[in-house]
Simulated scan of single mutants.
Amino acid sequence: MSGNHPLRLLCAAVAAAGLVATSACAPSSQQDQASAAKQVSVLPAGLSLAGKPGAPAPKPLGQRASLKVGIPSKLELEAPALLAQTYGEFSKENLDVTFVTDTVPNLLTLLGQNKIDLVYAGAQALVFNALRHGVPIRWVSGVASAAPDSGVYMSTKYGTKAADFDPATLKGKNIGVNPGGLAAPSEYGLYELITKGGLKPSDVRMTPFSDPAAMVQAFNNGSLDGATLGPPFTASVKPGVAFQADGGYPDTMQIAGYFATTELLGAHRDAGVAFFRAVERTVNTHLSGDYHQDTEVMTKMAQQLGTTVETLRIAPSVPFDFNVPAQSVASLQKMYQSVPGTLQVDPPVKPEELIDLSLVIDAAQGK
């Protein structure tokens, strides 16, 4: 499932470079394929993407197919796909899956070049820019709800609990953030807190850390007033040093997941549905509830992620969730617009332009 089109290559390169492109970057064949794809941006009322162990049942493809899936690194959030490989769930679908590891910008470029079929990534501004630049990209699956202990942590110098914390206190404070700051979807909790405080991003000093462990160390020794943290790094915050001022992001939105182009949603749709049948079945069978207590699952996961069961158990089990609430599109764009030069989208992307849940819906329904 690969092939290069000169305009597609150009669009991917333009999107990755953050330059302006023309409508010529959307070949008529891709436009026709996009319009023909069965696009569903909101889950039908009453439909759940979760199911019982063993569901959805395998529905082997009539002819062996293969997919290349891009991942930036091996994280627990990618465990459903990685363990689907381990448990042989892809084989049950008559599907071969190869994982390609690279940076998110490079993976999205490869996706635009049709050299890979799916990419696991955060919904970066690059995704929105690529869509407007003519790359037929779609957000086809979420990955998880926000972990209960992820979010913005503040020094106990400024309070003891979220209910009593005044977000306006953030003005002038030094907050540790992930690389990219508010240009990264993982910082949505901080953006929400800044907004609640009636502040502008420029009112807050943000210090980026490429190493979360170093961020925790700086927070613990008092060099930072706050930090955006998630598991397992939240477990390293010293008792009494901090309190959780805000969650990572609300249930009404998603910040990451799998991205594909209309190629997978159209010509190779059966393989895309098979991929998500296997992934959903893996979650329903092995990764629901407090799966961190299942030694067999954790042993296999640790082997896949190159870590230990003990390290993984420092953090709570991940609440996997394949939905992408429509509000995600507007909320993330609003945050990116607060960072000059980040979002090059006009007019704003609408949920129905970017989100397409039809693959995970068909998979959940056993189609």
Results as ranks from 00 to 15, higher is better:
A36G: 13
L10M: 15
S66N: 09
V204Q: 03
A162H: 05
V273W: 05
D203Y: 03
G230D: 10
P232G: 13
A302I: 00
D149F: 05
A50K: 13
T307R: 09
Q337C: 02
T261W: 09
F276D: 01
L264R: 11
P325I: 00
A15R: 05
L83S: 10
L193P: 03
K157L: 08
Q303R: 15
A65Q: 15
F276V: 01
A147M: 10
A213G: 13
L43V: 04
L199M: 08
V204W: 03
L264T: 10
A12L: 10
V241G: 07
G172D: 05
R64C: 06
N178C: 07
L224T: 00
G112P: 12
E310S: 15
L199A: 08
Q39V: 02
V69H: 02
G248T: 02
A24Q: 13
D164W: 10
V140I: 14
T86N: 11
L7D: 10
T22N: 13
Q33L: 15
P316R: 11
A57F: 06
F275W: 12
K196L: 06
K350I: 01
N114H: 15
G306D: 08
F99P: 01
S141D: 00
H5K: 13
Q85F: 03
E78M: 05
L229A: 08
V345R: 06
A163T: 14
P56N: 06
T282R: 04
T285K: 13
T311A: 15
Q39A: 07
P58R: 11
G341Y: 09
V324W: 00
A130H: 01
V119C: 01
S202Y: 05
P53G: 07
D321F: 00
T98L: 13
M1R: 10
A271P: 11
G18I: 00
S41I: 00
D203H: 04
